[in-house]
């Protein structure tokens, strides 16, 4: 939070002539820092990788495929065993599973030396940043398909694909899920796996975390979604479906493993 404030001060002060002092700022000398690479691997399931435009059966036994799947991961925190946290500043990462130039990997830099045991992150964009689409922080201005212009805000999860209209049918129809709005912002907290319950991060130890995103879980998990009845998220009746999908994507992530390095 502190760092977010710092940025808004910089923007504010740029009109007042103080920005010219940026060079005078001294970095605290005592802080030792490491980094961690975080990789979001889009999966069909725990055991099966995801392939773009390939049909799979979802939790409702509908045959579906994705041509696009992208989402915002934001406000990443690393949690120490004593419960204290390091929060990544300006933490907005566009993760793309398919068909976009964005990446599935980002690196958290300047992590204070220490031992960490959990990762916490959000799916979506916090209310403060979600109330304007004109603030270039992190990946927020990277992909203009991820904003709504008629109803200001970011798309948290954007999925486009096809579904079979009926089990016996050969007809595939399009679905578009643009899930966003403050009510669909979700927090995910994952303890490090039992093989590596804690990870040391410092100048010598730069671990790599490999996460699975089981993206078909947007149709399953706590709430089974019938895509045949809910194929366009811009229809008004979708407002009751969106929170169910949000509860699903809140549970679609697992840590597969951590390379200690």
């Amino acid at each position: 939070m502190k760092n977010k404030l710092r940025l808004s001060y910089l923007i504010l002060l740029s009109g007042l002539g103080l920005l010219s002092c940026k060079k005078d700022k001294v970095k605290p000398a005592e802080a030792k820092q490491g980094s961690m690479e975080v990789h979001f691997d889009s999966r069909r399931s725990l055991t099966e990788d995801f392939v773009v435009n390939k049909n799979y059966l979802n939790a409702n036994n509908d045959s579906v495929s994705f041509s696009t799947f992208k989402y915002f991961i934001s406000n990443v925190e690393l949690v120490r065993p004593d419960g204290t946290t390091f929060a990544e500043p300006n933490s907005y990462h566009l993760i793309a599973a398919a068909n976009t130039p964005a990446s599935e990997t980002f690196t958290i830099a300047n992590i204070p030396d220490g031992n960490y045991s959990k990762i916490r992150f959000r799916v979506g964009v916090d209310q403060a940043r979600n109330s304007s689409t004109a603030t270039p922080v992190g990946d927020l201005d990277k992909d203009h398909d991820m904003t709504w212009d008629w109803n200001t805000g970011y798309t948290f999860v954007f999925a486009i694909g096809k579904f079979k209209s009926a089990p016996a049918s050969a007809t595939f129809l399009d679905f578009t899920y643009q899930i966003g709005k403050d009510a669909q912002y979700r927090t995910v907290e994952l303890a490090f796996p039992s093989e590596t319950p804690t990870a040391q991060i410092d100048e010598m130890h730069k671990p790599k975390m490999h996460l699975h995103a089981n993206i078909f879980d947007i149709f399953g998990g706590p709430n089974v979604i019938d895509v045949k009845a809910n194929s366009n998220s811009n229809l008004p009746q979708f407002s009751t479906v969106a929170p169910k999908i949000a509860d699903n994507y809140a549970q679609m992530f697992r840590i597969d493993h951590i390379h200690a390095h």
């Binding site: 109330s131 304007s132 689409t133 004109a134 203009h144 008629w150 200001t152």
Partner: peptide
């Protein structure tokens, strides 16, 4: 629907 003029312009 637009929450600020900056966002509206897009």
């Amino acid at each position: 629907g637009a929450k600020d003029i900056e966002s509206l312009n897009f």
